[in-house]
Structure formats: C-alpha cells, structure tokens
C-alpha cells in the first residue's frame, strides 16, 4: 500500500484526470488500464504511462473536438511520466 507521502502512480493519474472527467475519472482510468494494459489499476507502473497516455488521448478525442484541452490533459499526464509515483509492487 502507498503511504500518504507517496501516492500510487494510479492515484496521481486519477487526480490529474479528475480535472477533466470529474467523478468519472477513477472509472475511466481503471477501464483504460484494465482494457488496454491488461493490468489491475494498482499495478500501473511508470513504464506503462506513455502507452496509457496514448490510449487516454485517443479515448478523450472521442468525447470532445477540442484538441487543445486534450493536449493540455496529455501534457499534465506527461509531467507525471517525468516524475512518476510508485506502483503497488514498488510501494
């Protein structure tokens, strides 16, 4: 389990996503990880992040035509890739 000081990478991704998808954020990220990375959300690790961002970008493009916000969202997630949190196995 992650401590309060070092949240799981998954939680960080959800926190960023919350700004864009609100209450649907957790469910959305869990689905992306499970369906496209074939992992449980807690097992999300830094090497998965770029692939996950690609899937998220693709998914979000289906609900909006506003490419600027999509890019802004992807960039926020890319920042996590540069300073990733811990996966469950590392925590």
């Amino acid at each position: 389990m992650a401590t309060a000081q070092s949240p799981l990478l998954y939680d960080k991704v959800v926190r960023v996503t919350h700004v864009y998808l609100g209450p649907a954020a957790d469910r959305f990220i869990a689905r992306q990880v499970q369906n496209h990375l074939h992992k449980s959300p807690q097992e999300l690790s830094p090497p998965d992040l770029l692939k996950l961002i690609d899937w998220i970008r693709l998914g979000v493009s289906l609900i909006t035509d506003d490419s600027e916000i999509v890019e802004e969202y992807a960039n926020q997630l890319l920042k996590l890739a540069q300073s990733p949190g811990k996966s469950k196995s590392q925590a």
């Binding site: 864009y20 609100g22 209450p23 649907a24 954020a25 916000i69």
Partner: peptide
C-alpha cells in the same frame, strides 16, 4: 459546479 471539464460540459 460539477468538477471535470468534459464531465461538466456534458
């Protein structure tokens, strides 16, 4: 007042 840009739009 809903959170989430896309969620709020919808």
């Amino acid at each position: 007042t809903a959170k989430g840009i896309f969620y709020q739009q919808a």
